[in-house]
Amino acid sequence: MDDVVLLRFTLNDAPVEVAAPAHWTLLEVLRYRLDQIGTKQGCDKGDCGACTVQLDGRAVPSCLVLAATVQGRDVRTVEGLRGPALHPLFDALDGAVAAQCGFCTPGIVMAADALLRKVGRPVTAAEVAEGLAGNLCRCTGYQKIVEAVVAASERSEARRG
């Protein structure tokens, strides 16, 4: 039994090594050990989706992932969507003024990015609504968020096209 775990995993394409108490969540390790504060701490019980990250490519609430279980796995946070060009989701969310207070935005981006990669073609508004059903926006700006994700998927398709 371990009270402290020494974790080695991939964070945003780079290997990291970090020690954490066994009862810490991935969210706590990201924010309080690795200074990855783009990932937000909201309800802390999986209801709100503000802490959504990608674990082996799938969107999960990091507040309910025990840090010890990410050993050897691939973690991506909103910081990991930085690239030489602006990510289509960032561009589309900005263009649609889809962030109001912005607290839910990193989680929305990570869930939406996983959805777009999974679907692999332009998505419908219904697919986005279902895919983001675990991410709450308390400013209730859902309409613009859904429109932005649809637009981002269409832009990505055009770029690939």
Partner: peptide, 12 residues
């Protein structure tokens, strides 16, 4: 903020 109580962990 809701934090977990302390516990040990095994990952067999």
């Amino acid at each position: 903020m809701l934090r977990l109580p302390r516990f040990g962990i095994v990952t067999p």
